[in-house]
């Protein structure tokens, strides 16, 4: 259940996420979802998360970098609680994804805030870069963008073990987005430009540094410097496409919200020097920090973003 793209027990971004849990554990959750629905799976989750927090120190260590910045004055006891809440909420998101996959998309309600603004941006026909983050459950919320009637091209690794692809295959649903593999020719850059030049939608993750990424700029995030990639901002400058910062949150048991937080307009012709993009990357980091203030347990980057070595 604690799977790909999630808890990374190591502290650097270059190492691969390590999956917790076991096939038997997955089956137990799937069985509970089938027999008792989401609440039954949540019931087991409370105990499983407690076990991991108490007896798997690497799980607490994975939470620590973020919690140390989000709750800088918290003591040891409070940090245990924060770690528990953070992993529990992450587990609920994974359960919800499994529920949708097994029982259908009508099991969750997704509300979109910013629909009219998105339509207005789409109608400009300059393309748009949806800047997503590892918050809430972006996979569930992507289906809320169908009204745009434009294919969304998601930049993501197309590993055979990709949880995202399995999610839709298992659900026998059409994947609401196409993928561009950043390991392709020139990092998929030409494909991305092609998408934007045709006025379509490109979706990227703004808060995670791909391995060996050199094109980074340091900005402030929750009080300390982090390195974030600026390639998407350069694409925006080259093509004239705006960056649209979207965040998702689990707002209640079966309810998710997807919100357009901010439109970032990057001037054209900024070239390729990192410093030129810092103010715009900072706008994104500020939006993400605001989200973390409002939703402290729904930020799921389980590695040390602040370790810039």
């Amino acid at each position: 259940m604690f799977g790909a793209g999630g808890i990374n027990p190591v502290s650097t971004q270059q190492k691969q996420p390590k999956t917790l849990g076991s096939p038997l554990g997955y089956r137990a959750f799937y069985l509970l979802i089938r027999s008792g629905g989401r609440q039954a799976a949540y019931g087991l989750l409370y105990f499983v998360v407690a076990f991991y927090i108490l007896f798997r120190p690497q799980v607490r260590l994975s939470c620590r970098p973020y919690l140390r910045h989000r709750f800088p004055t918290a003591g040891a006891d409070a940090n245990w609680w924060h770690s528990y809440r953070m992993v529990l909420d992450f587990g609920k998101v994974l359960v919800d994804r499994a529920v949708v996959g097994m029982l259908g998309p009508d099991q969750l309600n997704v509300t979109l805030h910013g629909r009219e603004q998105l339509l207005e941006i789409r109608n400009r026909r300059h393309g748009m870069i949806l800047m997503m983050s590892h918050v809430g459950c972006w996979q569930v919320a992507m289906s809320a963008l169908n009204f745009l009637e434009e294919p969304v091209h998601m930049v993501m690794h197309q590993d055979d073990g990709s949880l995202e692809r399995h999610y839709y295959e298992y659900a026998e649903q059409e994947c609401p987005y196409r993928t561009i593999d950043p390991r392709g020719f020139l990092g998929g850059t030409l494909e991305m430009m092609g998408v934007l030049k045709q006025g379509m939608i490109l979706a990227v993750m703004g808060d995670r540094l791909p391995p060996h990424e050199r094109n980074v700029v340091t900005v402030d995030f929750l009080g300390e410097a982090v390195a974030l990639p600026f390639s998407s901002f350069q694409l925006a400058s080259a093509t004239g496409a705006p960056i649209v910062v979207m965040m998702t949150r689990k707002s209640a048991g079966d309810c998710y919200e997807m919100e357009l937080i901010r439109e970032i307009r990057v001037p054209q012709g900024l070239g390729r020097k990192a410093d030129a993009y810092r103010p715009y990357v900072q706008q994104y980091a500020d939006a993400l920090a605001g989200y973390c203030r409002d939703n402290p347990y729904q930020f799921y980057n389980f590695f040390d973003m602040w370790n810039n070595r």
Binding site: L186, G187, T189, Q234
Partner: peptide, 11 residues
């Protein structure tokens, strides 16, 4: 050259 250069080169 790298991917950022590619974007600039296209422009």
């Amino acid at each position: 050259l790298d991917s950022l250069d590619a974007v600039e080169l296209v422009v």
